[in-house]
Amino acid sequence: MTAVRFRDLLAAEWLKMWSLRSTPWVYLVTALAVIGFNVGQAYDIYHYWTERNAGSAREYVRDGLPVQVAFTANAGNVLALATVAIGIVAITGEYSTGQIRTTFTAVPARRSVMAAKAAVMTGVMTVFGAVVAFVSFFATQAILDLRDVGVPLSHPNALRAVIASALLAPVCALVGMGIGALLRHAGTSIVAGVAVVLLLPFFFSNDHHWSAVIAHILPMSAWNRLMEIPFTPQIPYPWTFTGAWLVYAAWALGAAAVTVTAVQQRDH
């Protein structure tokens, strides 16, 4: 039997992803929801801006608040939840329909199949996250500019926030794929995904060292750290931006490894 080239597996996974009519709509709705939260916040600031606010415009910009408006907590949560779900369905969908058996019959190299699936998801989600992040930033700053408090991408911390928000999409999608590969049931996997990404951070704080350590290794905590602005109050156990980037990388690589290896350990 002729070995299947990895680029052919990539092409097959690309076709699988876009053969579903719902795929473009899922991405569109997610993008509109995320951008909508941020633009809505920017419009509220524009609409309720008063003469008193105008007097402190310089401080508003200096403190980096326009960057915070570009990526609100609600928008980050929606993006994380949606991309985790997309990653989960990319795996569990094939198991629920039985298509995965056909795939593995045609291509016995299971790890290669799952690696291709993870690679395609990573590429698509990186582009998707970048589009959403950049559109959100420039749209919100255009609205804030109407009150002379919008900032350019070169503003301190702005580019970091854009990149962190863009990469949140592929990180969470890969986490979803890893969970889906382990549990293989859509409902159970989504519950687990929500718990890992959105709920766990609420159970840990920076008040105690052990709790801070756990909080710091969670993906949404890393995103929040990368979104922090200069005047954030001091916390007992602070961590660095480099640490937050490493958490991103660890979750992405770890989840990809689980996705690739879990399938080899089961269904023999």
Rank of each mutant, 00 (worst) to 15 (best):
R5K: 13
A11S: 14
M17G: 10
L20E: 10
L20Y: 13
V29W: 08
A31R: 10
V34Y: 10
G36R: 11
N38E: 10
V39C: 08
G40L: 07
Q41C: 00
D44A: 12
W49V: 10
E51N: 14
S56V: 15
A57V: 11
E59N: 11
D63V: 10
D63S: 11
L79W: 09
A80P: 03
I86Q: 11
I88A: 06
I88V: 15
I88P: 06
I88T: 08
A90T: 13
I91R: 08
I100F: 01
R101Y: 10
F104K: 10
T105K: 01
V107R: 07
P108G: 02
A118C: 03
M125N: 05
T126G: 08
F134T: 15
V135H: 00
S136K: 03
F137D: 11
F138I: 08
L144V: 03
L153R: 07
S154K: 01
A158F: 07
L159W: 13
L159S: 12
S165I: 05
V171M: 10
C172R: 06
A173E: 10
L174P: 08
A186S: 15
I190T: 09
A192W: 05
P201M: 02
S205R: 12
D207Q: 12
H209L: 14
I214F: 12
I217T: 13
L218Y: 03
W223I: 08
M227P: 00
I229A: 06
F231L: 12
F231Y: 14
T232A: 14
Q234Y: 09
T240L: 02
A244Q: 02
V258S: 05
